[in-house]
Design a protein around this nucleic acid. Structure first.
Length: 223
DNA sequence: GCAATAGCATAAGGTTGAAA
DNA sequence: TTTCAACCTTATGCTATTGC
């Protein structure tokens, strides 16, 4: 595994300067901003991630106003009351994506948000408080307690929220292979822990958030 | 030493719209 | 009308580990 000094000089060289590199890097939201986001917006983001999975993002985004409409602006207290018949009816609405498993996930995730909110005050509190040094633990928590949030959905969801995380995209996995940290996409707890440990070390060396290190590393592979 | 649980790898399943 | 690309989740059956 190479150190941050190597990563930094590689990226500066590739992008041609500090300003060019910084312009490419995402900025995580502050804990205050994550706490300030309402539970309805979190439910909307979760649902958006679920429906985007496997589909072209622009296609789903274009349909999103209709989703906001039929799901009561994603108010979890209202969505949680939607029964099977109600969802069956939505399967007839061509403005939506008619995937029953995904439609069912919305009331499930509303319940999840309400459960978390009852325990901690709000869903944003959970997201804001979870340490990025164990972000893979948050992926696991979301996959287990939420609905349709396995695979890359949890990390992609967190990036959409602005929570600091890396995302094991194809490019990042290729970079991690080149660094000798994994030999395939990390799925086991052991592999995930190894990747987290590597990121924690780069973060300690650089002070950069995980999301920036993730993007920088992804750019170290050619394709 | 046994049953229950957790972890793992693999295969199968799924919607939309554009292109063939 | 069929195929393809977008890209991922879930189910299944198996093995390893834990708890008693």
């Amino acid at each position: 595994m190479r150190d941050y000094a190597w990563l930094s000089s590689y990226c500066l060289n590739r992008f041609g300067g500090v300003a060019e590199l910084e312009a490419r890097l995402p900025q995580p939201r502050s804990a205050e901003a994550l706490r300030a986001l309402g539970d309805d917006r979190y439910l909307s983001l979760i649902a958006l991630r679920v429906f985007r999975a496997g589909l072209k993002h622009s296609l789903v985004d274009a349909k999103w106003p209709a989703f906001e409409e039929v799901f009561f602006a994603f108010d979890p207290h209202k969505v949680v009351l939607m029964g099977a018949e109600h969802l069956e009816r939505l399967m007839q609405d061509s403005r939506l994506i008619r995937h029953l498993g995904k439609l069912k996930s919305v009331p499930c995730n509303a319940q999840f948000i309400l459960d978390v909110a009852r325990e901690r005050g709000s869903f944003g509190q959970l997201i804001a408080d979870w340490p990025s040094s164990d972000i893979v633990g948050l992926w696991k928590y979301l996959a287990k307690n939420g609905s349709q949030l396995g695979g890359l959905s949890a990390p992609r969801l967190l990036r959409m929220m602005g929570k600091d995380t890396f995302i094991p995209t194809d490019d990042l996995v290729a970079a991690l292979k080149a660094q000798g940290i994994v030999d395939k996409a990390p799925t086991s707890q052991k592999e995930l822990a190894a990747v987290q440990a590597a990121f924690n070390q780069w973060q300690a060396e650089s002070g950069r958030p995980l999301c920036q290190l993730s993007v920088m590393l992804a750019h170290t592979v050619n394709h």
